[in-house]
Nucleic acid binder design. Structure first.
Length: 509
RNA sequence: GAUCUCGUAGCUCAGUCGGUAGAGCACUUGACUUUUAAUCAAGGAGUCAUGGGUUCGAGUCCCAUCGAGAUCACCA
């Protein structure tokens, strides 16, 4: 233990000796919050020059002591609650035992430490320097802190000193990070508001919120390596889901017109500033619709999110150096048009060899297992994707890369799929769902052939899903959103770790 | 997985050419009854990430390991 930790344990023991419980069980009545008082306190100056305080004259608030300044027989502290900070003013003469013995020096000045949770009762007033404060008449210890918090200071110009900045410590000890770096709370408030806005939009559309299995016997619905686990009683291998798509479609088969799920997905792949092993997706599926309808819904939903998150209700958001307009309609570009526009290649007429030589020329990595579709996708990723700053629907993908997507109504070799790109990154993936069970079986068989060639991410055959389709699934549109990526977009964060409370870390020591 | 950078007091950081471990804040003691990065005086606090090596001597140089960040590869 460090010196400071030992001292705090000694303070704890002394409090108990004095009959003060540092961790009381009973609730503490809170009648006011810091931000409300500092923003709404009113007082008037009477004709004789005295001040008349108009509100907050009997308040009870609770929070953490974040700073203290002793001034002789008085003391100032900053109390932080969930709404913000407020200054407390304490005078020695206000703190006496029932017998009248002074306890200010011992109890408050010595045994109260930064980081302690306390409750205070008193009245609001303005100090000589004009700061709205609470004159404390009664103080209650609510929880003693045994470790010192980092002390982050700010001066009058807003300059920060000794900020708690080490990303490793911030992510490992989010409780400390969010206590002292309160600006990061805003990211998570926005994340919550974003999800709430989407949920209420989907509820208005009449969709049903559902939950589907995370432990799955067959990992389907996406191309990714799964986490494996084992169920003891069943004595069988299970996978943490990489997607919930096939289960949501079973519910469409079951006769629900529309279903949605916000849920964690798990992918056993690399970690970097845009990938965490577990991440959150929103997927929804709506019967009797197609991907054209889904584009309009996407535009409406994201516009609503943007307005909910911007301070002035604007549909625009600033992301890095770009101002992004989320009100629709968004630009629509086919995969082929996009590649032609940014590279000049006519991918429709080009053959595999021509694409391969272009990749060589542009130093785009390829391997021999890649077919024409995969090569186009590689070129898109290298040459096009980062140009798509304003929301852009990229539509109509080659059939080989979309085993769950319905064939295009008019363009052979393509499927009815779109991905939404914003700020050069994919944020949603949608399609007119494949509901032809015979076609779906053939697509799975193609995937099996890929797996046999060593593709670890190829989808497995899911006989029960095929059986469901054979019972009949109505024509359906479906979409998946990366909630973490969207949060990054709307909060201007470059790292996924900043939008997750507890990003995955290697174990300490 | 590869490459580069980083790891020193509770926090933020110095530490020169290899020669006794430093500062500010925090902490302790004292002064001050409207302070606010409070101020003033004095003081305490370190397994220099871990383990080896070179050297008379290593925070510093070399190797390995652990952890983090950035870039790249894969993926969303």
């Amino acid at each position: 233990m460090t010196e400071q930790e030992i001292l705090r344990r000694e303070s704890l023991a002394k409090l108990r000796e004095m009959g003060v419980e540092p961790y009381p069980a009973e609730m503490y009545e809170v009648t006011a919050h810091a931000a409300d008082i500092t923003q709404n306190y009113r007082e008037e100056v009477l004709e004789d020059g005295t001040k008349n305080r108009l509100n907050f004259q009997e308040v009870s608030l609770a929070g953490r002591v974040m700073a203290s300044r002793e001034a002789g027989k008085a003391m100032f502290m900053n109390l932080q609650d969930s709404s913000g900070r407020i200054q407390l003013y304490l005078r020695r003469d206000d703190f006496l035992t029932e017998e009248g013995a002074p306890i200010f020096d011992t109890l408050v000045k010595k045994l109260l430490d930064l980081g302690d949770y306390i409750g205070v009762k008193g009245f609001a007033f303005k100090t000589k320097t004009g700061e709205v404060s609470v004159h404390v008449q009664q103080l209650t210890f609510l929880s003693k802190a045994l470790r010192p918090l980092p002390v982050v200071k700010k001066d009058a110009d807003g300059n920060t000193f000794d900020a708690f900045t080490d990303p490793e410590q911030r992510y490992r000890m989010r409780y400390v990070d969010l206590t002292v770096n309160t600006q990061f709370r805003e990211i998570f408030l926005k994340r919550s508001r974003m999800i709430r806005t989407m949920r209420s939009y989907l509820d208005e559309l009449g969709l049903l919120e559902v939950e589907t299995p995370i432990l799955q016997p067959i990992h389907g619905g996406a191309a990714a390596r799964p986490f494996r686990t084992h169920h003891n009683t069943l004595d069988m291998e299970l996978y943490l889901r990489i997607a919930n798509e096939l289960y949501l479609k079973r519910l469409i088969v079951a006769g629900f017109d529309g279903v949605y799920e916000f849920g964690k997905m798990f992918r056993n792949e690399g970690m970097d500033r845009t990938h965490n092993p577990e991440f959150t997706a929103l997927e929804f599926y709506v019967a009797y619709k197609d991907y054209v309808w889904m584009m309009q819904v996407t535009e409406q939903m994201l516009e609503r999110v943007a307005r909910a998150l911007s301070p002035d209700g604007s549909s625009r958001a600033t992301v890095g150096e770009h101002e992004i307009e989320f009100a629709g309609p968004y630009r629509r570009l086919t995969m082929y048009e996009a590649v032609r526009e940014y590279t000049g290649i006519d991918v429709e007429s080009a053959d595999e060899a021509a694409l391969r030589s272009y990749c060589r020329q542009e130093q785009i990595e390829t391997d021999n297992s890649m077919g024409k579709a995969k090569l186009i996708d590689e070129i898109f990723g290298e040459k096009v994707e980062h140009h798509l700053i304003q929301p852009t629907f990229l539509i109509d993908y080659p059939v080989e890369m979309s085993p769950l997507t319905k064939k295009h109504r008019s363009s052979p070799g393509l499927v009815e799929r779109f991905e939404l790109f914003v700020n050069g990154k994919e944020v949603a993936n949608a399609y007119t769902e494949l509901n032809d069970p015979v076609d779906q079986r053939e697509r799975f068989e193609d995937q099996l052939r890929l797996a046999a060639r060593g593709d670890e991410e190829a989808m497995a055959m899911d006989e029960d899903f095929l059986r469901a389709l054979e019972y009949g699934m109505p024509p359906t549109a479906g979409i998946g959103f990366g909630i973490d990526r969207l949060t990054m977009l709307f909060t201007g964060q470059a790292s996924i770790q900043e939008v997750l409370f507890f990003p995955q870390m290697r174990p300490e020591k």
